[in-house]
Design a protein around this nucleic acid. Sequence first.
DNA 1: ACCGCGGGGGAGAGCGCTCTCACGAGCGGT
DNA 2: ACCGCTCGTGAGAGCGCTCTCCCCCGCGGT
Lengths: 342, 342
Amino acid sequence: MPTITGHPERHAPTLEAVAEAAGVSRATVSRVVNGSPSVRGEVVEVVQKAIAELGYVPNRAARSLASSRTHSIALLVPEDVSRFFGDPYFASFTGGLDRRLADTEYVLNLVVARDDPGRKAVRYVRGGNVDGAIVVSHHRGHDFLRQLEGSVPIVYGGRPDVALSSAPYFVDVDNESGGYLATRHLIESGRTRIASIAGPDDMSAALDRVAGFRRALQEAGLPDDAIVHANFTASGGAEAMRTLLARQPDLDAIFSASDLMATGALTALASRGISVPGDIAIVGYDDSPAATWGEVGLTTVRQPSELMGATAVDVLLQLLGGVADVPHENIVPTELVIRNSA
Amino acid sequence: MPTITGHPERHAPTLEAVAEAAGVSRATVSRVVNGSPSVRGEVVEVVQKAIAELGYVPNRAARSLASSRTHSIALLVPEDVSRFFGDPYFASFTGGLDRRLADTEYVLNLVVARDDPGRKAVRYVRGGNVDGAIVVSHHRGHDFLRQLEGSVPIVYGGRPDVALSSAPYFVDVDNESGGYLATRHLIESGRTRIASIAGPDDMSAALDRVAGFRRALQEAGLPDDAIVHANFTASGGAEAMRTLLARQPDLDAIFSASDLMATGALTALASRGISVPGDIAIVGYDDSPAATWGEVGLTTVRQPSELMGATAVDVLLQLLGGVADVPHENIVPTELVIRNSA
DNA sequence: ACCGCGGGGGAGAGCGCTCTCACGAGCGGT
DNA sequence: ACCGCTCGTGAGAGCGCTCTCCCCCGCGGT
């Protein structure tokens, strides 16, 4: 049964056909297709004309079989896809990644390591199906990632928590400077009694933001000890807000380490009739959709997630291109998005 | 493992190597790998043992070159990736799709048709790089999709708006029954003065939900004319809520055609001291993250987006498998998620 | 004149797999 | 005993590229 679902495949033109049409050898066409500099200009033109006329498209499989390069890279997600993409941060990370990749000949393979744990994904990556991989949303405990070492170049989105045997390449965001930025903004708008609803104290990202918060306050000679840790949820944010108000009723600004917690804080404030930004200014963190869903738009620190995606691709392409001395740590800066809440 | 006489060069084992190790021909190994029934059981075992010992992984490129089947399918997104994945609906559609695909040998290629318009993506799909494609988030005006016709089997997520020359395959959700489900739930919990905050009246999905709303009320002999259209935003929902209250202050239930509008309605109700679900019950639509972000969890109609993704894969696999009489229209039912608001 | 050299282009051997054929063995029917 | 089958397996020809040789030609130096 050679017929596949009745799709009459018109024999796609091959390199050979182009070569014949252009009156040159296969090798020459190949050179033109791959942009080799050692073909005379006029020959290049003839070949390109033939390519255009025949509508030739290189066969990826043949190419990668012959060159043992696949021209595809894996986006390795070590968890459920819907959870992954449901996170706006990763959605836009992927967006930046894809946009950067669009300029190249590379194709993105979505590889999910859900069950197993990761057996299939590891086999896929190690099996020579991709030239490199970008690993995102990895967490402590994803030890199977170690099995990828020594196969293809890998770039991590976020500093990997897994103990790897050699220094990994990764891109990460500068949380400290994010906290600093947010706090400076509050200071510059004249606030002086500034507190922070921080994230869990066992997450380095949360602690780094606190560090930035403190640095800004210290530089300004303001007290830096009004800090309550919460768990990155809206209700946690609301509770933290109440705690802070109880402790220090004359607060005039809050730096919340996540937008979600900020929305909780906003709710808590609203229910007490405290106006934002009139009485208290709030800066969030993430620039998630939650930032614009409430009545007041949330001023927040955006993680340059697109840039991170693009950077991850850049690093990987350099690695694949054999560039020497590619930096292992690639830290991108954060950016303040000013709306109404501060 | 390195042999005594061999070079230390660790070269990925090929079919040939397995064949030699197992003492059979390449063809036989190929048969085993591809699950051909015509190999004796004991031979299968020997071969599988050899495969396991050598850690053999088939070379995808070679396989697809020889068979002219790529074993990969495209997820074609005709718009910006971050916007696409930022939508929880699509995130989980993709999740379902991926999960279903995980049981197969197929791999997902993320293909974005952003600029161009779609030139590169069309070339990619037509160029024989994938066996089939799933097109999502397509809109009126995406005429380039027509150029895909006649290349590989295509399944659309959502009924395509583009004028195609032959009946497309698609999966879609049953909006009418979603509206019906939500409204029935309100009726069954004893509500009798039920209104709807509907979506824009030029979107068929919105109108279908209204139709379901009406059907439920008519069946119950309740008035079905308390309907205000809004634009699917939170502030639109809040305004619609105020309008409804002004019109009919004794309302005891609301069916909101989106979760976002429902959150707006909740805000409006809270500011008037109307309790949910005490005074007024609310059912939303989508089961987006917004449904769980507020103080009260939103009872809502979940679009079975995962199921849709999985169904799209099923349909495509059937098409690829040459199954006859694959249905073109695949409508999946909606599902009620009960939380606190109703 | 000669030689050497370098650049442009052709020839051809694979890359690792699939798949059609051919082949031999075993078996039942006549 | 013969034929004709089926069944399991092997042989070998590609699939469409890349890439290493190698050759040819024109040039400059001696």
